[in-house]
């Protein structure tokens, strides 16, 4: 299968008064055509920054992509001018955000907001764009689309607004849809509906999807390929079945153990001890070592690199390196 996007050695730093934060630290992965890739990780692991870097939405000068290449559709995104990048954003790569309530402009009617990318990228006139916007609103499962098109964001619920965001994102039939925790701000019943719809639309349009989430339930449901991030690094990746059946990295194992299982009541839910290390103070070591139950001497002094396992699975952990002895 063809790759839609290849990300090579991407590093995005943020410069704060206390020093540089390596929010994304030398990560590489690819997204295949029609594939749903999920990035999972705790808050601050760099998953959202990865998505924003791909979109070219890192706010300079506070943040900056310091290294790497993003290949998309025969182009190298980081070499493009602002104008060239703009014609790709919203057109070939679209993004939906976590908070639908604050992600739509409060003073512009919803229909107009959906029409904007259609007019900008596809050159539709006002009438055509309006007709298409109404079709899109209907497509994302909202009834009375004409009336909704005239409404303002404050008149709709969070779930409806996220549907509107999706309608806006898919309006130009992008090759890649990036969804940054699209269901986190919504209540649970709505979450499932939104995810189902995203999955259905993705299948129908043969889009690829990059889904950012911290919810392993979501991952199990719709991911094809999973990337686990920790402190700006990829610690493990693989196809969803491989990863769920046979997690290699102690962090992935911990994440899966801390996921509640329906019908299996435990007295206390497992949680990984300790906390994410301070991103300003990362030493040459495995960033997970002080929370890891299998910590070896080498883990405290050297950063492990990603290493291929069976299938597409790769893991960055000294436990799987030859020459380091297991206990």
């Amino acid at each position: 299968m063809r790759n839609v996007m290849e990300i090579e050695h991407l590093s995005t730093y943020f410069y704060t008064r206390e020093g540089a934060v390596k929010a994304v630290n030398d990560i590489s992965f690819r997204i295949r055509e029609g594939e749903t890739v999920c990035i999972v990780g705790e808050s601050g692991s760099g998953k959202s920054v990865t998505a924003l870097s791909v979109m070219g939405l890192i706010e300079e000068p506070a943040g900056k992509i310091v290294e790497g290449q993003i290949h998309f559709d025969g182009k190298q995104l980081l070499n493009l001018s602002k104008q060239e990048l703009r014609t790709i954003r919203g057109n070939d790569i679209a993004m939906i955000f976590q908070e639908p309530m604050s992600s739509l402009n409060p003073v512009i009617p919803i229909g107009k907001q959906i029409m904007e990318p259609l007019k900008t990228h596809q050159g539709l006139n006002k009438k055509e764009a309006k007709r298409r916007a109404i079709e899109l609103i209907e497509l994302v499962g909202i009834s009375r689309p004409e009336q909704i098109a005239e409404s303002y964001p404050h008149q709709l619920s969070g779930g409806m607004l996220q549907r509107v965001m999706i309608a806006m994102a898919i309006s130009c039939e992008p090759k890649l849809l990036i969804a940054d925790e699209p269901t986190t701000a919504l209540d649970v019943t709505i979450q499932a509906q939104i995810l189902d719809m995203l999955d259905r639309i993705k299948q129908k349009a043969n889009m690829s999807m990059l889904l950012i989430t911290h919810d392993l339930g979501v991952v199990a449901e719709i991911a094809d390929y999973v990337i686990v991030m920790y402190s700006g690094k990829i610690v493990e990746e693989g196809e969803v079945v491989e990863l769920f059946d046979n997690p290699k990295h102690p962090y992935t194992q911990g994440l899966l153990r801390s996921k509640p299982i329906i019908g299996d009541r435990q007295d206390e839910l497992y949680s990984i001890p300790g906390q994410v290390p301070n991103p300003l103070d990362l030493k040459e070591s495995c960033y997970f070592h002080d929370r890891c139950e299998h910590c070896l001497p080498i883990c405290k002094t050297k950063l492990p690199q990603l290493k291929g396992m069976e299938g597409r699975q790769r893991v960055a952990c000294w436990l799987y390196e030859e020459g380091t002895h297991h206990d």
């Binding site: 939405l57 954003r89 919203g90 679209a94 993004m95 900008t120």
Partner: peptide, 15 residues
């Protein structure tokens, strides 16, 4: 955030 959304849609800076 809606300004970020507008950027993500690929609108011109002037718009």
């Amino acid at each position: 955030e809606y300004i970020r959304t507008a950027r993500a849609k690929g609108l011109k800076e002037r718009v």
